[in-house]
Design a protein around this nucleic acid. Structure first.
Lengths: 337, 337
DNA sequence: GTGAAAGCGCTAACAG
DNA sequence: CTGTTAGCGCTTTCAC
């Protein structure tokens, strides 16, 4: 038998309204009434039924978060940032994982509709403008982390993947490298595409040729980085540097290099992206780009909660700075090799 | 204006009961009635209010998961396992993070009471028997991952930390090491204590002395492993092997070793625990113990859902096997050093 | 096969 | 300061 507000009211000899008031810290309840009620609540270990409460209030105080997966450092940090911020604002978190599957992504979002959450934070691959339009008609606030679609009518918190990619590749160029390979990420991932665009842009600006043999595609997994590197190493004219669009794949490059007896950074410079925890512990430590994922998660919550609270905030596009981190996996192009 | 079941009913010219039936796939609705209703639901983009539904049904079809944090590989994998399994069973996931803070842990659990979830999966540090007793009086099923308390009256899915610690240390002993250091985990973490107990047990069985100077305590963070190792390396008689109770701290040991020009594994064998993704990419690859965290998460959901469905399952204590993974960070004790 | 209506447990006017 | 009461939106029994 679960205990309800009626039980408490009866036992305390007050009305349910009064009990409700004390639960909700309504000032107008007299001190002793409050005390008595509190006491009985405690004694009966009463916990208000949140469905009933949500129904009556028309809000849930829960945030939904949709991510492809949670085991990669990148998303794990976002989740942590979101969770902490949500907690601090007295919101709880629904977590939905899409496995980067288009259909599951849509299911997840639909699932969160229907007053299950007050707002939604989305890190998605497949969402399109049409779907966003549909979303807007729902009684639901939302903000994106990362911008799968260019759309000024939605709030996003992002990182400038283009510039970050540009800068990281420029580092390689400044080191004297000309034969630079690029390992792209999942074809569906817009962020990898942006990094690639940045790469192409610098190459072009420095009048460097983009050799198609040097452009490989992985799915952000280490294994794919490994395969891509193997192919690269089988080329007649090998690249002297490789830019992997995430650290996982860079780790794969390390492995392939080791197997082929190619020394990093002496014979091959490599730069990654993300600055995962392991990056600084690799041998040699990996030059990479750090994204403030935790803070991005926090920021998304901040914006979302403002919206939920009804503050008329303009749709904003927050761009966080990345940090280029020079470590030892990249060095001046050797004249020997 | 959110659209409700009444709107649909009116527009379809049927009663709300009928709409409810079709939403819930109740067989008895006639094919054309169903079709018409479905059509209007689609057209209006109607999503049933889940609070109302939960209130009426007295269940939520959501699972709560409480973890200390989500950025470590260990918990991230659990989260992923739980999320996937929940999704497959048409449950969604509430995620709560405790930061390994006692008070927040309790808040989180209390928060989930009150019909917010149908069941709870707990990975906690501080829970005690009293609190469990209290939990049992709530209308809530739960299962633990890891067993902070020895209590046969609750379901748990665990790993045998004692034996795993025993075995890993035994590996070192078999390699000829006698001066073996141990870096304990967070004092609050029962699992680290169990690993330590296993360590002490082998040492004792092999008549090896446990030197207090060789026993350090960290908080599972890499930084603490680093500090502990520094202290170890400052000892007059240095250990020839160190067993870090998780991989993060082992990574700290690597760093300290490097700074002190101590070669792993030639001068120092090290073994970790957890087999995080980076473990195999360290230089040298880390000997460690793998825990099937993802599967543990899945299993917990499986048990929990059985309970929720009212199947009278006995409280079970599922013990998963760990896998000892020999890599290159440990080797025969050198006669030179 | 369909509908009327009584809840589910709580909130929040409104009245006193 | 406290109580009465009408919802919140959906499910489900029972009757037709």
């Amino acid at each position: 038998m679960t205990v309800t507000i009626d039980d408490i009211a009866r036992e305390a000899g007050v009305s349910t309204a009064t009990v409700s008031y004390v639960i909700n810290n309504n000032e107008k309840v007299g001190p002793e009434t409050r005390k008595k009620v509190l006491q009985i609540i405690e004694k009966r270990d009463y916990h208000p039924n949140s469905s009933a409460r949500n129904l009556a209030r028309k809000k849930t105080e829960v945030l939904g978060l949709i991510v492809p997966e949670v085991t990669g450092v990148f998303y794990a940090d976002i989740v942590q940032g979101v969770e902490d911020a949500a907690f601090q604002n007295n919101f709880t978190l629904y977590l939905g994982t899409t496995n980067a599957k288009k259909e599951r992504e849509k299911m997840m979002i639909d699932h969160f509709s229907g007053n299950r959450v007050d707002g939604l934070i989305l890190t998605t691959y497949f969402i399109n403008k049409n779907y966003i339009k549909e979303l807007k008609n729902r009684d639901l606030d939302f903000v994106f982390i990362g911008n799968p679609v260019k759309d000024d009518s939605v709030s996003t918190v992002v990182v400038d993947n283009f510039s970050s990619g540009y800068r990281a590749a420029e580092h390689l160029i400044n080191l004297g490298h000309k034969k630079i390979a690029f390992i792209k990420g999942d074809p569906n991932s817009w962020d990898a595409e942006e990094r690639f665009a940045g790469f192409k842009a610098v190459m072009n600006n420095y009048d460097l040729e983009i050799n198609n043999d040097y452009i490989k595609t992985g799915n952000y997994q280490q294994e794919e980085g490994y395969k891509a590197a193997q192919e690269l190493f089988n080329l007649e004219v090998k690249p002297t540097a490789v830019f992997a669009s995430n650290d996982q794949m860079a780790m794969g490059v390390y492995k392939a290099a080791q197997e082929n007896n190619i020394k990093i950074p002496e014979q091959l410079s490599v730069v990654g992206f993300d600055d995962i925890a392991a990056a600084s512990h690799l041998n040699p430590p990996l030059t990479t780009v750090n994204q403030p994922t935790y803070r991005m998660g926090q920021k998304a919550v901040e914006i979302l909660i403002k919206k939920i609270k009804g503050q008329k905030v303009p749709e904003e596009n927050i761009v966080f700075e990345t940090e280029f981190i020079k470590r030892n996996s990249s060095q001046k192009k050797s004249k020997i090799f």
